[in-house]
């Protein structure tokens, strides 16, 4: 498998692996490290990936095995390890569940970006900074050269517009 094929076919599965690892390890940072290690392993054995029929199931299995190793090496409690590992026994169903979750996330994200595109420029920028990039009000004041009261007022108007749009969207 070439580098471009690896980027195109394997790396997008990171969302699935991240969800699985977070469920098993209970920590987003540990899950991110585990997924990175899995990708390194996949890169080293990328020549074998061409022979794999179900790539998604293969990488999910690899991620599960890696998470089990991490759970054992870190000495997690027996209850945590047994419950979370047992929950991943039916990996096929779990993969389907995670795939649906990933698709739902993408749909919601796309919907929000579509709604944001209809907002005025100032409101859109403030919503992005405040809710997507999670900036503090003081930092937004400095970047946007606005007072805090103006920021709060503008964001409130933007939220009201989004709620109306969302209500209309669900009303369809």
């Amino acid at each position: 498998m070439t580098t471009d094929a690896f980027k195109k076919n394997i790396i997008p599965l990171q969302s699935h692996l991240q969800i699985l690892a977070e469920r098993m390890l209970g920590d987003a940072t540990d899950a991110e490290d585990a997924v990175q290690e899995v990708f390194m392993h996949l890169w080293e054995s990328r020549d074998k990936l061409d022979k794999v029929v179900n790539i998604k199931a293969y990488v999910m299995q690899a991620t599960r095995a890696r998470c089990i190793d991490i759970i054992r090496s870190k000495g997690h409690s027996k209850e945590f390890a047994s419950s979370d590992v047992d929950a991943t026994l039916n990996l096929h169903d779990l993969t389907e569940e995670i795939s649906e979750e990933v698709e739902l996330t993408e749909r919601r994200s796309a919907m929000l970006h579509s709604m944001l595109d209809d907002l005025p420029e100032k409101q859109r920028q403030l919503i992005r900074l405040r809710y997507l990039e999670e900036k503090e009000i003081a930092e937004i004041e400095k970047n946007m050269k606005m007072t805090s009261s103006n920021i709060y007022t503008t964001i409130s108007r933007a939220i009201q517009t989004l709620k109306t749009k969302l209500k209309n969207e669900y009303a369809r």
């Binding site: 749909r107 919601r108 994200s109 919907m111 997507l132 999670e134 939220i159 969302l166």
Partner: peptide, 16 residues
């Protein structure tokens, strides 16, 4: 933010 809108923001943050 309403729950539905909050879900949209969570999904967008996760996607990002």
């Amino acid at each position: 933010t309403p729950d539905n809108l909050q879900q949209l923001f969570d999904a967008a943050k996760r996607k990002q």
